[in-house]
Computed example of a mutant assay.
Amino acid sequence: MYFDSKKTLLKVLSLFSVVRIPNIFLIVLAQYLTSIFILAHQDNPYDVLTDTTLLIIVFCTVGAIASGYIANNFYDQEKDLINRPQKLMIDHIVSQKTKFWVYITLNFSVVFLSSFISIRAVAFFLSYIFFIWFYSHKIKKLPLIGNLTSALLSITPFFAILLYFKNYNALIFVFGFYLFLVLAIRELLKSLINIKGDLTLNYKTVPVLYGEFYTKKVVSILISINCLVSFILIYFFELRKMNIFFIGSSVYLIFIFFLLRKAKDQRDFNLIQNFLKLLIFIGVLSIVLLDPSLVLNKISF
């Protein structure tokens, strides 16, 4: 009995590893904070949190992204055996057959749940599921296009809630572009980290085709553009106390730029990638700074 329970727990943890629960949690948090503080800032936060349609959109997002991670895990097996053998051991506790049925179940659930919203919602999530699969199967092997597509797919869930609230605020698009650039930088760094596996399996990534120096140059250009976007946000939008984040993030990215110039091996690139993860996490939490009074004064049950 004890061993059966332990085996079941290990399988659950393995599946959580495959679908990257921390990443999904951050996306859900970002969707709700964006809804409360940008897209439906005029509404009571409690009404937003208890909005059934928004909840379904979030569930569909979770299902689509989780299934995407499963597809990615399937196609990346050989590469992970070279780049991340320890994680692969954990992921393989769950059989490929189980992962396949979880993948099918998640996608069916997404389509079923989205049908309660509208046909357009079904079309949106079906398209999203397809492009995640197509990215994992084909696009991710293409130089730069693969990196940019991954970043674009990561911000796509925000367009789902944008379409729902029909609040086409320019701020959300500039925010989205800022996040897109940060994610693109992170994807290029991941290509540098995974270069051994990509080279062995003949993936046509930027580092494989053009080398480390050129990849660093592209990342440096993206960092420069990102700092420019931060400047635009600070001077052309009413961000209130969120200005603090964008000023700080510009300094932070310049710090990363100098770290990147000195980076020489996988350990250095991993460190920089972790710094970017921290920036993304703080960026999500800092959405609250757009209107702290919503948290302090306006929540009523």
Rank of each mutant, 00 (worst) to 15 (best):
L142E: 00
L142M: 07
P143G: 06
L144H: 00
I145G: 05
L148G: 07
T149N: 09
L152Y: 06
L153D: 00
F159N: 06
I161F: 02
I161Y: 00
L163Q: 09
L163R: 02
F165Q: 11
K166Y: 14
N167V: 08
N167L: 09
Y168A: 03
L171Y: 00
F173A: 13
V174G: 08
V174R: 10
F175E: 01
F175W: 09
F180Y: 11
L181T: 11
V182L: 15
V182N: 15
A184I: 01
I185H: 05
L188A: 03
L189C: 06
L189M: 06
S191A: 15
L192T: 00
N194H: 02
G197M: 12
L201N: 13
N202K: 13
Y203T: 01
T205I: 06
P207D: 11
P207E: 10
V208N: 10
V208Y: 15
L209C: 06
E212V: 04
F213R: 13
Y214Q: 05
K217V: 03
S220W: 00
S224Q: 13
N226I: 01
L228A: 12
V229I: 14
S230Q: 13
S230V: 09
I234N: 07
L239E: 08
K241V: 05
K241Q: 14
M242N: 12
M242L: 13
